[in-house]
Design a protein around this nucleic acid. Sequence first.
DNA 1: TCGAAATTAGGAATTATTCCTAATTTTAAG
DNA 2: CTTAAAATTAGGAATAATTCCTAATTTCGA
Lengths: 130, 130
Amino acid sequence: MNNYSKQREAILDVMKENLVHPTAEEIYHLVLEKEPQISKSTVYRNINILVELGEIKKLNMTAGPDRYDYLYKEHSHAICEKCGNIFDFYYDFNKDEISKELLKQIGQNMDINSITIYGICEDCKSNNKK
Amino acid sequence: MNNYSKQREAILDVMKENLVHPTAEEIYHLVLEKEPQISKSTVYRNINILVELGEIKKLNMTAGPDRYDYLYKEHSHAICEKCGNIFDFYYDFNKDEISKELLKQIGQNMDINSITIYGICEDCKSNNKK
DNA sequence: TCGAAATTAGGAATTATTCCTAATTTTAAG
DNA sequence: CTTAAAATTAGGAATAATTCCTAATTTCGA
């Protein structure tokens, strides 16, 4: 695994140009403009490879399909569990202390990759339609 | 919505008795022992209702189907992005300060429901098979 | 320049979840 | 108790999201 392919490069370009947490489907449509022949399975396969390589991050959604994020710089995510909106933000979590707690409580060290806040955004609170 | 049904009660009982973050499929099989006639769609529908009611929490997984957690008491989750293992732990995040930062950076308040750590567990680090 | 390994397009298959319908159950009012 | 409206159910069909399969093409190192 890991030969060059213009398809994979086009996908990474799309991610760099669209810092809006697109779904796989949205990535597919965006990349079609650069690579009109690309197939959806190629998009899915390369997204997974880019996630493994650590170039992009998979965002786990409460509702709807997964979303992806190009890691231009370290940041955290706050995700609304109702509308699915994703907000990027920066917060200096004390990872050392969290790691120490994890070791104490679950008996093992973890490499912390990211921290995500799940909640309800202001819009969903006010328009509290079910 | 919200009439009594023994099916919904059986599902909640299963969640209380199995604090192991089961998938919908696993919940279905567990609840079959109590309610042999129950259908899978009933399980899915009631899981969603229980999530809306705030009795159980949906855990957003990097890989594989969603998992669910009975909220016996407040805790956070650390999820391994490789093997999908979920570890419960408690950490006293400074939610007030995080909220303040959110307001400053994204321009709105959010009700914080939960905080999840994503990373790589020790086992997956050592057996670093792709 | 050549062959093995990797990648592709396209579609089939699979997985996870939601939707649909007629029958049953629950609930509250009389 | 009755009764009727509203909610819920079982079962299966439908949908959505993702992965898998295969033959053809591309990449790349010897």
